[in-house]
Amino acid sequence: MADLTQQQWSEQCEKDDNAVILDVRTDAEFDEGYIPGALQIDIFNGAEFLKRAKALDPEKNYYVYCRSGGRSGQACMLLNSIGVKNAYNLKGGIIEWKGEINN
């Protein structure tokens, strides 16, 4: 797992042909706005999160975010523990995000 700044995260993700953006917030938070192209899996729903995480391609690079960076850090560690090699946490989360947001 790596904690990346907003700039590092967006630049690296943009150049990565193997990138998947993962939003680990709740459905209600996701509905308020999300980073374009994000796949949402709610980390608060533990069993469902783990089930869906295990179905992800472990060879992809996951760019993970939440509201402020805490849950996404946990999600990155969980992803690493189930065999995902590359998980990048967005420091500061979506509340500090300066890029595009879909509503």
Results as ranks from 00 to 15, higher is better:
residue 27 D to Y: 03
residue 16 D to L: 05
residue 6 Q to R: 11
residue 46 G to D: 02
residue 6 Q to M: 12
residue 59 E to M: 04
residue 51 K to T: 15
residue 83 G to I: 15
residue 85 K to S: 12
residue 22 L to V: 15
residue 47 A to Y: 02
residue 85 K to Q: 15
residue 87 A to Y: 00
residue 86 N to L: 11
residue 13 C to I: 03
residue 17 D to Y: 04
residue 20 V to M: 11
residue 37 G to S: 12
residue 100 E to P: 04
residue 60 K to Q: 08
residue 34 Y to T: 07
residue 2 A to L: 13
residue 76 C to M: 12
residue 98 K to H: 00
residue 38 A to M: 12
residue 101 I to R: 07
residue 78 L to P: 00
residue 81 S to V: 01
residue 2 A to R: 13
residue 35 I to E: 03
residue 42 D to I: 11
residue 93 G to N: 08
residue 33 G to E: 12
residue 32 E to Q: 09
residue 76 C to K: 06
residue 70 G to C: 07
residue 60 K to N: 08
residue 99 G to D: 14
residue 15 K to R: 08
residue 14 E to W: 02
residue 7 Q to R: 13
residue 51 K to E: 07
residue 7 Q to V: 13
residue 11 E to T: 09
residue 66 C to R: 05
residue 38 A to L: 06
residue 85 K to C: 12
residue 90 L to A: 07
residue 68 S to W: 09
residue 11 E to G: 08
residue 12 Q to W: 10
residue 96 E to P: 01
residue 85 K to N: 14
residue 15 K to H: 04
residue 11 E to R: 13
residue 20 V to T: 06
residue 60 K to H: 06
residue 4 L to C: 06
residue 58 P to H: 05
residue 102 N to K: 13
residue 33 G to K: 11
residue 60 K to I: 09
residue 58 P to L: 08
residue 100 E to V: 14
residue 88 Y to N: 05
residue 26 T to V: 05
residue 79 L to I: 11
residue 36 P to E: 12
residue 74 Q to A: 15
residue 55 A to T: 13
residue 4 L to I: 07
residue 93 G to C: 10
residue 37 G to A: 05
residue 1 M to T: 14
residue 12 Q to C: 04
residue 33 G to S: 10
residue 27 D to K: 09
residue 103 N to E: 14
residue 7 Q to I: 08
residue 66 C to Q: 00
residue 10 S to G: 01
residue 56 L to K: 02
residue 41 I to L: 15
residue 93 G to W: 01
residue 15 K to Y: 00
residue 3 D to R: 06
residue 16 D to V: 10
residue 87 A to I: 03
residue 92 G to R: 05
residue 58 P to D: 10
residue 22 L to K: 03
